[in-house]
Design a protein around this nucleic acid. Structure first.
Lengths: 269, 269
DNA sequence: AACAATGGTTCAATATATGAACCACCAAAA
DNA sequence: TTTTGGTGGTTCATATATTGAACCATTGTT
């Protein structure tokens, strides 16, 4: 482990919950020597990555990180950082995958990656994803801001016979998603498409969008669903990470549970 | 120079203008060995501070900085607390305003507010403000920690014909600022920009940064200067207050004097 | 006054960083 | 096809920069 890595690792111990950390305390947390830690903090301080509260002598994150974040935000658009995870997702599942972002009260398509494997495949060509009928939209209703449900209820357009067109039906669907951590749209937008999606989070910890796989219904087996969910988790973690966020632990918990327990949904096949 | 410092220093070469940098290029810019730079980049990459564009192999800032910035913002909301005063300052003066913070021996840009009023306006796009050539930097020399002058004297880069490039010239400039309480950079960093700034103080009563207005030289009249100074005082008190500090009474005294007495500078018009 | 914290410092031992030279690869010339 | 000049990446002997036990100076508590 290089000294650079060790020094950078110190930064990871700062969080909203632990904003200021003293030297000795940091040594305990990071399980490291005091002299070394001190010197690393010095180096981080001259670079502006940490600064010292002059009164308490405790260290906290410095202004340099703001600058870097500004540059990163200005130069690396969200879309670009989804491309690799999306590509991997498509490769491993063999199905078309896409990313949607929540902007205001609408879910917009941000990026798509078509699978070259099958002759028939889902074609994603919509701009705004209906909240009540698509996996991404339902994901937003389940994990996004509260006000979203009212917006969804205002337009319960029926796309297929499976579309939830009553408040109670929609409510039930969303509740089910809150149990599993995965958005599911079973032929509710297009008759031959099964959609599965996982939520994405930004650096504020807020729901920011969804990553989804759209599979042709005829080949959507429980086994495929399981595979898709596994790789959706990976993609979601990846993209969320790229956006500066982390998957909330309760979502991770839901995922873990819904992948290990005998699947209620799968037994319907 | 520790290897940690060297590695962190690499990050400072990324900017909006230079978002992606290749290994060789970075070596030239940073004037450093390739093998070492490579290893440092590796360490930075593992920590998420940089990432590599998979196709071009170039490096760019990574997602980790977003997370750090988020916690910094959440816990030390300095930036947030400057936004209102900055906005007001821009509104009342019609000129671009910005806030810089002193961290170690460098003045970092923290926040900018562009004036929408004029077609031509100052664009603030520097990360580290030269101590000897900018209003903020001179403010730091005048009211900041003592050791700062030595640092400034070590680099008297000439940006324009007006830049103070000799110790005595710089000393005179700083002395003048100590008389008025306002930093002044008259075309000393960019030929067409006049900068005025006021110091900011933190909860310990120490100099912590500066709030500045950058005006296009051609419309910088004595009347405008007077207006700017009036509102700089307000902004400085505001921001300092938000940071838990108070303006030292001697600074208040300087301000009162320099705004009521017949202005030496103004009479030049 | 003794104690137990804290932040900060020292110095010999050595682990770790270093960089000249190297390879593999690519694209444009020759 | 070979050459050239540019990448990114790797090696290894050298020695320099890092390390941590033990230390000091302060501070607040018992």
């Amino acid at each position: 482990m290089s000294s650079v890595t060790k020094a950078l690792d110190l930064l990871s111990h700062f969080s909203a919950a632990r904003a200021e950390i003293g030297l000795s305390q940091l040594c305990r947390i990071a399980k490291r020597d005091k002299a070394t830690t001190y010197r690393h903090l010095q180096a981080l301080e001259v670079a502006g990555f940490v600064e010292q509260n002059p009164t308490s002598k405790q260290y906290r994150l410095g202004p340099a990180v703001l600058q870097l974040a500004q540059t990163r935000e200005a130069t690396v658009p969200r879309k670009a950082s989804t491309e690799r995870p999306l590509f991997d997702l498509t490769e491993t599942t063999g199905e078309t995958a896409h990313v949607t972002v929540l902007s205001g009260t609408k879910m917009f398509g941000l990026a798509v990656c078509d699978s070259p494997r099958h002759g028939t495949r889902a074609i994603i060509d919509i701009d705004v994803f209906p909240l009540h009928a698509t996996a991404s939209g339902l994901c937003a209703l389940a994990f996004g801001p509260k006000g979203l449900m009212d917006v969804a209820l205002a337009d319960l357009t029926s796309f297929t016979t499976e579309t939830a067109t009553t408040p109670s039906a929609l409510s039930n669907t969303v509740d089910a998603i809150r149990q599993t951590g995965f958005g599911r749209a079973m032929r509710s937008y297009e008759t031959e498409i099964e959609g599965v999606s996982a939520p994405l989070f930004d650096q504020t910890g807020q729901f920011a969008g969804a990553v989804s796989v759209a599979s042709v219904a005829t080949r959507f087996t429980p086994a495929l669903e399981h595979t898709i969910k596994e790789h959706l988790m990976i993609a979601s973690r990846d993209i969320t990470h790229n956006w500066g966020g982390t998957i909330p632990s309760h979502i991770e918990g839901l995922w873990a549970k819904s992948l290990t327990t005998p699947h209620a949904l799968d037994s319907t096949s």
